[in-house]
Design a protein around this nucleic acid. Structure first.
Lengths: 205, 205
DNA sequence: GTCTATAATGCGATAGAC
DNA sequence: GTCTATCGCATTATAGAC
């Protein structure tokens, strides 16, 4: 068997090798943007991490913001594969959220990515600004609906406002991540989030 | 009266003019680091904002990290002038914290500064890493002491853990700032924080 | 105290060979 | 698909004139 024959494309699809390389690049980009943010994270460091030149990298993604967009998309695909919130409602969704936070504690790089990027993208000119705006808007609406449903079922404590609770849950998740990243003490994000949910519900989780 | 005589230093101190210039620079630096973070905020933009060259700027602060340190110090001085937490305890401290948050809503630049910087400085190599570590540590300890005191006075709801409550308050403050900066809806940070305190205390504020 | 000039490096991006 | 070479620009910082 000749060398060229061995190197031929495997029959997994027309662009298998390319797609694999793209995924490699995106994973490297996620790491880089996590530690340095988007603005300070360089194409050079991404290219180095994946063992290719900057020009080679830019063949796959035409510019830096396209790389960021694709990287965030990839990260979301991965999360969706692991956690499907679409079918869940009420207490099921709440417990799934706690499980997600529990999982996040095992992937500090991801936590770093979203913490750094969501703060950086606060500025309206940031290429990920709209992405995070929508992300927050969607999550908030999902939580409002969930709390409203729990309220209708009499599971919400008296005086708790669904919209305020939704803002609070998201804020708590974000804020705990920051403190957790400073690793000052042994902070259990999932446990603290559960505690907060318990303070909102009539019967504990 | 000759021109040179008019330009002479006013008798307010030996380095009045210099000190004023330094403060001008620090204020500009605070703005720049707020919108771009430390890593992406450039000396050039700070210099431009204050109408001088980069070299002129570096005469006052020997390098970029020294500028950041001095800027944060200045910002803290300003806050301490307005809010003195040292003499306060129990419910007094809690209400003062809410007032601080209320005030923050009137200075979005400051909120932006601390949100972006505290996330960016999560990385251990960041020049402001230790600053924020200590800041979080101090605030957390103050809140733990406060909640412990309230608990001893029977003002804390049953089952509330002072340490968890302290983490929660800080997380909520940080997280609300992020959502507030995205300005998706009319978010009242102080009102939401007060709500959280009410959920921790036996008698509302 | 502030400037110009300059060094030395890093950046994102493009052109074109292979 | 990946490379080398290169462009043009921004960056932090220093040296030295005024």
């Amino acid at each position: 068997m000749t060398q060229p024959e061995m190197m031929r494309r495997k029959p997994r699809g027309p662009y298998f090798k390319t797609e694999q390389k793209r995924r490699e690049i995106l994973d490297a980009a996620l790491e880089v943007f996590a530690v340095a943010g988007y603005r300070s994270g360089s194409l050079r460091s991404v290219a180095q991490r994946v063992g290719m030149s900057e020009a080679g990298l830019l063949h796959h993604f035409h510019n830096k913001t396209a790389l960021l967009a694709a990287a965030l998309e990839r990260r979301d695909d991965q999360t969706r594969k692991r956690f499907d919130f679409d079918g869940l409602r009420g207490r099921e969704l709440v417990t799934a959220l706690i499980e997600l936070v529990e999982y996040n504690a095992s992937v500090p790089g991801v936590v770093e990515l979203f913490t750094v990027l969501s703060a950086e993208a606060t500025h309206p000119e940031h290429p990920a600004h709209e992405y995070f705006r929508e992300r927050y808007s969607n999550l908030r609406q999902t939580l409002i609906d969930t709390f409203a449903e729990l309220q209708a079922d009499g599971e919400l404590r008296q005086g708790v406002d669904p919209a305020a609770a939704a803002r609070g849950v998201i804020a708590l998740m974000d804020g705990l991540q920051v403190q957790w990243l400073y690793r000052d003490d042994e902070l259990d994000m999932a446990a603290d989030l559960r505690r907060y949910f318990d303070s909102l519900l009539n019967t504990p989780l």
